[in-house]
Design a protein around this nucleic acid. Structure first.
Lengths: 168, 168
DNA sequence: GAGAGATATCTCGATGTCAAGACAGTACAC
DNA sequence: GTGTACTGTCTTGACATCGAGATATCTCTC
């Protein structure tokens, strides 16, 4: 009920209510904020990684490998499912990461169509450093929210995300 | 405390807890979900707009103009602030929208550096149709959440977004 | 064990974005 | 009024992404 605009989305919703009073624009309260927040997060991440000489896309691939645990090795197919990009993109990413010496490619001994990608020593060190730095910054971004609110927010987002993740 | 993975992010967090038990990865519960959800939303929007022969980037610009109200006219500078893109991108977008007959450019009579961009009749009709379609789909995406939860979620997101929106 | 269809990866062309800088015009202080 | 800093828009070149299709291999059925 409060009509004071507290963020851009409040202003945006107020404008729509004036222009299209016939429509129910409530969904924007959630979904526009998700999109905008993601865009800001991308920029924050870019800044965080710059100190470690990593691009966000490089980080995405390296963390997927890191999370897999020793020997830090996954197929391109597993990587593209983890990072939500297309196969052409993943091929390109792996090429450049390999050229930078952060990952290694080898043929899959069990499937001659397949390839396995693994972290190099350098890649492992780089991703570990960047990741703890990122967590520090993300922790700060969330500092306006208490632990209870954070858990509540995570739960609500999980509900929205579930239909996307399961049927894939 | 429940350790059953309910979405990809739960699995991701569990993997990190195993691999880096020294780090507090709680922030990912919120922020990874925001990023992933935004990515899925982009795809859903793309699908929705395809029926109206619009790309998401076209829609972003057209809605900003539509929201401004009659005469549906804004400067490129205002548009890029509304859409979080750079000036080079906005120039390119306006070029292509003008070529498609959806917007019109004219010199700003009050500032000879400036330009004003406005919706054409076609642009207005197109954006209105696409917008109500989008809202219908976004409404469905949120159907897993009751009205109370939606409001709670919007409020929590607003808290996170506020520091980004105000200091700009 | 042969064939059909599925799967894994890569190639290629088109495209949208960004960053940095160019340029014209404005505003403000002196 | 003149000079300096700022603002608004556009240009350019590099680059990451996507989508469609190519190729090789595997799997399953008969």
């Amino acid at each position: 009920m409060t009509e004071d605009a507290r963020d851009e989305v409040d202003r945006l919703v107020a404008a729509w209510r004036t222009e299209r009073p016939d429509l129910d624009v409530e969904p924007l309260q959630v979904l526009s904020r998700v999109s905008r927040l993601a865009k800001h997060l991308d920029r924050a991440r870019r800044a965080a990684f710059a100190e470690h000489d990593l691009e966000p896309w490089e980080f995405d691939v390296l963390t997927a490998l890191r999370r897999a645990g020793k020997p830090y090795e996954l197929s391109p197919g597993a990587l593209l499912r983890a990072t939500l990009v297309t196969s052409g993109t993943m091929t390109n990413r792996i090429d450049r990461l390999a050229q930078a010496g952060l990952v290694r490619r080898r043929p899959d001994p069990e499937d001659r169509r397949g390839v396995l990608v693994s972290l190099t020593e350098t890649g492992l060190a780089r991703v570990d450093a960047a990741f703890s730095d990122l967590l520090r910054r993300e922790h700060d971004l969330l500092s306006n929210l208490g632990p209870t609110d954070q858990r509540a927010l995570a739960g609500l987002l999980r509900t929205l995300l579930a239909p996307f993740d399961s049927p894939l």
